[in-house]
Protein backbone atom coordinates (compact mmCIF):
# COMPACT_ATOMS: atom_id res chain seq x y z
CA UNK A 1 0.00 0.00 0.00
CA UNK A 2 1.27 3.45 -0.82
CA UNK A 3 4.01 2.23 -3.17
CA UNK A 4 1.80 2.49 -6.23
CA UNK A 5 1.09 5.77 -7.95
CA UNK A 6 -2.65 5.54 -7.48
CA UNK A 7 -4.62 2.84 -5.76
CA UNK A 8 -8.21 2.22 -4.71
CA UNK A 9 -9.00 -0.48 -2.18
CA UNK A 10 -12.49 -1.85 -1.49
CA UNK A 11 -14.34 1.34 -2.36
CA UNK A 12 -18.10 1.29 -1.67
CA UNK A 13 -20.90 3.77 -2.23
CA UNK A 14 -24.66 3.24 -2.11
CA UNK A 15 -27.48 5.54 -3.08
CA UNK A 16 -30.69 4.58 -1.29
CA UNK A 17 -29.70 0.93 -1.18
CA UNK A 18 -28.45 0.82 -4.76
CA UNK A 19 -24.78 -0.11 -4.80
CA UNK A 20 -23.31 2.33 -7.33
CA UNK A 21 -19.78 1.36 -6.36
CA UNK A 22 -19.41 -2.16 -5.04
CA UNK A 23 -16.08 -3.14 -3.50
CA UNK A 24 -13.98 -1.58 -6.27
CA UNK A 25 -10.21 -2.09 -6.08
CA UNK A 26 -7.86 -0.96 -8.82
CA UNK A 27 -4.46 0.57 -9.30
CA UNK A 28 -2.78 2.80 -11.86
CA UNK A 29 0.92 2.92 -12.72
CA UNK A 30 2.65 6.25 -13.29
CA UNK A 31 2.74 7.35 -16.91
CA UNK A 32 0.16 4.93 -18.31
CA UNK A 33 -3.23 5.53 -19.85
CA UNK A 34 -5.68 3.59 -17.80
CA UNK A 35 -9.24 3.28 -19.04
CA UNK A 36 -12.44 2.26 -17.41
CA UNK A 37 -15.28 0.92 -19.51
CA UNK A 38 -18.74 -0.38 -18.80
CA UNK A 39 -22.34 0.08 -19.95
CA UNK A 40 -24.47 3.04 -18.88
CA UNK A 41 -25.09 2.99 -15.16
CA UNK A 42 -22.05 0.82 -14.45
CA UNK A 43 -20.84 3.43 -11.96
CA UNK A 44 -18.04 5.07 -13.91
CA UNK A 45 -18.96 8.68 -13.14
CA UNK A 46 -19.71 7.79 -9.50
CA UNK A 47 -16.19 6.38 -9.25
CA UNK A 48 -14.76 9.63 -10.65
CA UNK A 49 -16.85 11.65 -8.22
CA UNK A 50 -15.53 9.54 -5.34
CA UNK A 51 -11.93 9.99 -6.44
CA UNK A 52 -12.25 13.77 -6.80
CA UNK A 53 -14.00 14.14 -3.45
CA UNK A 54 -17.34 15.38 -4.78
CA UNK A 55 -19.02 12.53 -2.90
CA UNK A 56 -17.74 10.67 0.14
CA UNK A 57 -17.37 6.88 0.05
CA UNK A 58 -19.20 4.63 2.53
CA UNK A 59 -16.15 2.40 2.87
CA UNK A 60 -12.77 1.80 1.30
CA UNK A 61 -9.56 3.76 0.79
CA UNK A 62 -8.04 5.88 -1.96
CA UNK A 63 -4.24 6.32 -2.04
CA UNK A 64 -2.46 8.82 -4.27
CA UNK A 65 1.34 9.03 -4.38
CA UNK A 66 1.64 7.35 -1.04
CA UNK A 67 -0.95 9.50 0.72
CA UNK A 68 -4.41 8.55 1.91
CA UNK A 69 -6.78 11.01 0.25
CA UNK A 70 -10.02 9.25 1.16
CA UNK A 71 -12.72 11.75 2.07
CA UNK A 72 -10.56 14.82 1.43
CA UNK A 73 -12.30 17.92 0.07
CA UNK A 74 -12.37 18.46 -3.72
CA UNK A 75 -10.15 21.54 -3.28
CA UNK A 76 -7.47 19.56 -1.40
CA UNK A 77 -7.58 16.81 -4.00
CA UNK A 78 -6.97 19.30 -6.83
CA UNK A 79 -3.94 20.64 -4.94
CA UNK A 80 -2.74 17.08 -4.32
CA UNK A 81 -2.51 16.74 -8.10
CA UNK A 82 -5.72 15.14 -9.38
CA UNK A 83 -7.80 17.14 -11.86
CA UNK A 84 -10.76 16.09 -13.95
CA UNK A 85 -12.87 16.95 -16.94
CA UNK A 86 -16.60 16.39 -16.88
CA UNK A 87 -18.79 14.24 -19.07
CA UNK A 88 -21.39 16.96 -19.46
CA UNK A 89 -19.84 20.25 -20.58
CA UNK A 90 -19.13 22.11 -17.37
CA UNK A 91 -17.44 25.47 -17.93
CA UNK A 92 -18.13 29.16 -17.32
CA UNK A 93 -20.38 29.86 -20.32
CA UNK A 94 -20.37 33.66 -20.12
CA UNK A 95 -16.57 33.84 -19.81
CA UNK A 96 -14.15 33.70 -22.72
CA UNK A 97 -11.94 30.67 -23.28
CA UNK A 98 -9.03 32.66 -21.85
CA UNK A 99 -10.99 33.57 -18.72
CA UNK A 100 -12.09 29.96 -18.22
CA UNK A 101 -8.49 28.78 -18.19
CA UNK A 102 -7.50 31.78 -16.06
CA UNK A 103 -9.99 30.80 -13.33
CA UNK A 104 -8.45 27.34 -13.17
CA UNK A 105 -4.92 28.80 -13.17
CA UNK A 106 -5.84 31.15 -10.29
CA UNK A 107 -7.18 28.16 -8.37
CA UNK A 108 -3.99 26.19 -8.96
CA UNK A 109 -1.80 29.10 -7.84
CA UNK A 110 -4.02 29.63 -4.76
CA UNK A 111 -4.59 33.26 -5.72
CA UNK A 112 -8.36 33.36 -5.17
CA UNK A 113 -7.98 35.75 -2.23
CA UNK A 114 -5.64 38.20 -3.98
CA UNK A 115 -7.54 41.49 -4.12
CA UNK A 116 -5.46 44.34 -5.48
CA UNK A 117 -3.66 43.12 -8.61
CA UNK A 118 -5.51 42.85 -11.92
CA UNK A 119 -6.24 39.20 -12.66
CA UNK A 120 -5.74 39.62 -16.39
CA UNK A 121 -1.98 40.06 -16.09
CA UNK A 122 -1.37 36.86 -14.14
CA UNK A 123 0.36 33.95 -15.93
CA UNK A 124 -0.67 35.35 -19.30
CA UNK A 125 1.91 33.47 -21.39
CA UNK A 126 1.28 30.23 -19.57
CA UNK A 127 -2.46 30.48 -20.21
CA UNK A 128 -2.03 31.33 -23.90
CA UNK A 129 0.36 28.42 -24.31
CA UNK A 130 -2.15 26.04 -22.77
CA UNK A 131 -4.93 27.38 -25.02
CA UNK A 132 -2.65 26.77 -27.97
CA UNK A 133 -1.95 23.22 -26.80
CA UNK A 134 -5.65 22.31 -26.68
CA UNK A 135 -6.06 23.80 -30.14
CA UNK A 136 -8.28 26.76 -29.27
CA UNK A 137 -5.83 29.59 -30.02
CA UNK A 138 -8.18 31.15 -32.55
CA UNK A 139 -11.08 31.03 -30.10
CA UNK A 140 -9.17 32.42 -27.10
CA UNK A 141 -11.45 35.43 -26.84
CA UNK A 142 -14.76 33.78 -27.80
CA UNK A 143 -17.33 33.08 -25.13
CA UNK A 144 -17.18 29.49 -23.91
CA UNK A 145 -20.96 29.10 -24.18
CA UNK A 146 -20.83 29.95 -27.90
CA UNK A 147 -18.18 27.38 -28.88
CA UNK A 148 -19.08 24.23 -30.79
CA UNK A 149 -19.63 21.12 -28.70
CA UNK A 150 -16.28 19.69 -29.73
CA UNK A 151 -14.44 22.86 -28.77
CA UNK A 152 -16.24 22.96 -25.43
CA UNK A 153 -14.98 19.44 -24.74
CA UNK A 154 -11.46 20.63 -25.60
CA UNK A 155 -11.89 23.53 -23.20
CA UNK A 156 -13.04 21.00 -20.60
CA UNK A 157 -9.69 19.22 -20.92
CA UNK A 158 -7.91 22.59 -20.89
CA UNK A 159 -9.53 23.66 -17.61
CA UNK A 160 -8.41 20.37 -16.05
CA UNK A 161 -4.85 20.79 -17.40
CA UNK A 162 -4.56 24.27 -15.94
CA UNK A 163 -4.44 22.58 -12.52
CA UNK A 164 -1.13 20.91 -13.54
CA UNK A 165 -2.37 17.47 -12.55
CA UNK A 166 -0.18 14.41 -12.06
CA UNK A 167 -3.30 12.33 -12.57
CA UNK A 168 -5.80 13.55 -15.13
CA UNK A 169 -9.29 12.09 -14.99
CA UNK A 170 -11.16 12.39 -18.28
CA UNK A 171 -14.86 11.59 -18.08
CA UNK A 172 -16.00 10.65 -21.61
CA UNK A 173 -13.97 13.31 -23.42
CA UNK A 174 -15.43 12.34 -26.80
CA UNK A 175 -19.11 12.04 -25.80
CA UNK A 176 -21.36 13.56 -28.44
CA UNK A 177 -18.53 14.31 -30.87
CA UNK A 178 -18.34 13.62 -34.58
CA UNK A 179 -15.66 11.12 -35.61
CA UNK A 180 -13.47 13.91 -37.01
CA UNK A 181 -13.61 15.76 -33.73
CA UNK A 182 -12.84 12.52 -31.86
CA UNK A 183 -9.62 12.07 -33.83
CA UNK A 184 -8.64 15.63 -33.00
CA UNK A 185 -9.18 15.37 -29.28
CA UNK A 186 -7.37 12.02 -29.14
CA UNK A 187 -4.34 13.63 -30.73
CA UNK A 188 -4.61 16.40 -28.15
CA UNK A 189 -4.75 13.94 -25.27
CA UNK A 190 -1.77 11.96 -26.55
CA UNK A 191 0.27 15.12 -27.06
CA UNK A 192 -0.64 16.46 -23.64
CA UNK A 193 0.43 13.21 -22.00
CA UNK A 194 3.81 13.38 -23.66
CA UNK A 195 4.38 17.06 -22.90
CA UNK A 196 3.14 17.38 -19.36
CA UNK A 197 4.18 14.05 -17.88
CA UNK A 198 0.77 13.20 -16.49
CA UNK A 199 -0.98 9.91 -16.05
CA UNK A 200 -4.44 9.61 -17.58
CA UNK A 201 -7.45 7.82 -16.18
CA UNK A 202 -10.00 7.69 -18.93
CA UNK A 203 -13.66 6.78 -18.84
CA UNK A 204 -15.17 6.28 -22.26
CA UNK A 205 -17.95 4.66 -24.25
CA UNK A 206 -16.30 4.57 -27.62
CA UNK A 207 -14.36 1.28 -27.93
CA UNK A 208 -12.28 2.60 -30.84
CA UNK A 209 -11.04 5.43 -28.63
CA UNK A 210 -10.37 3.08 -25.73
CA UNK A 211 -8.47 0.54 -27.78
CA UNK A 212 -6.36 3.17 -29.53
CA UNK A 213 -5.00 4.92 -26.43
CA UNK A 214 -5.17 2.59 -23.43
CA UNK A 215 -2.39 0.64 -21.72
CA UNK A 216 -4.66 -1.00 -19.18
CA UNK A 217 -8.43 -1.41 -19.22
CA UNK A 218 -10.72 -2.05 -16.28
CA UNK A 219 -14.26 -3.26 -16.90
CA UNK A 220 -16.99 -2.07 -14.59
CA UNK A 221 -20.45 -3.65 -14.42
CA UNK A 222 -23.19 -2.91 -11.89
CA UNK A 223 -20.73 -1.00 -9.74
CA UNK A 224 -18.15 -3.79 -9.48
CA UNK A 225 -14.87 -4.48 -11.31
CA UNK A 226 -15.51 -7.50 -13.52
CA UNK A 227 -12.12 -7.89 -15.11
CA UNK A 228 -9.04 -6.00 -16.22
CA UNK A 229 -6.22 -6.40 -18.71
CA UNK A 230 -4.41 -5.06 -21.73
CA UNK A 231 -6.20 -4.03 -24.92
CA UNK A 232 -5.81 -7.47 -26.52
CA UNK A 233 -6.96 -9.31 -23.43
CA UNK A 234 -10.10 -7.21 -23.14
CA UNK A 235 -10.83 -7.32 -26.87
CA UNK A 236 -10.97 -11.09 -26.74
CA UNK A 237 -12.66 -11.44 -23.37
CA UNK A 238 -15.98 -13.27 -23.72
CA UNK A 239 -17.37 -11.83 -20.49
CA UNK A 240 -16.87 -8.28 -21.76
CA UNK A 241 -18.66 -9.12 -25.00
CA UNK A 242 -21.50 -10.55 -22.98
CA UNK A 243 -21.84 -7.42 -20.84
CA UNK A 244 -21.88 -5.16 -23.86
CA UNK A 245 -23.93 -7.26 -26.26
CA UNK A 246 -26.32 -8.95 -23.84
CA UNK A 247 -26.54 -12.63 -23.10
CA UNK A 248 -28.58 -13.61 -26.17
CA UNK A 249 -25.94 -15.90 -27.72
Amino acid sequence: MGDTFFEIIGLEKSFRGLKATNNVSLSIKKGEVCSIIGPNGAGKTTLFNLITGLIKPDAGKIYFMGKDITGHSPVDIVHAGIARSFQIVNNFPRFTVYDNIMIAALGYKKLAMKMFTPAKGIAKNEIMELIDRIGLAKEAHSLAGELSHGDQKRLEVGIALASHPSLLLLDEPTAGMSSDEKGGILETIKRVMKESDCTVFLCEHDMKVIFSVSDTIWVLHNGAVVTSGTVDEIRNNSLVKEIYLGEAE
Binding site: P74, V75, V78, N91, F92, I159
Partner: peptide, 13 residues
Protein backbone atom coordinates in the same frame (compact mmCIF):
# COMPACT_ATOMS: atom_id res chain seq x y z
CA UNK B 1 -21.90 32.96 -10.05
CA UNK B 2 -21.43 31.05 -13.31
CA UNK B 3 -20.61 27.62 -11.91
CA UNK B 4 -19.68 27.10 -8.24
CA UNK B 5 -18.98 23.38 -8.63
CA UNK B 6 -16.45 23.96 -11.36
CA UNK B 7 -14.69 26.56 -9.22
CA UNK B 8 -14.39 23.95 -6.44
CA UNK B 9 -12.96 21.43 -8.91
CA UNK B 10 -10.27 23.91 -10.00
CA UNK B 11 -8.99 24.26 -6.46
CA UNK B 12 -10.57 27.43 -5.03
CA UNK B 13 -12.50 27.29 -1.78
Amino acid sequence: RENPNRVTCTGSN
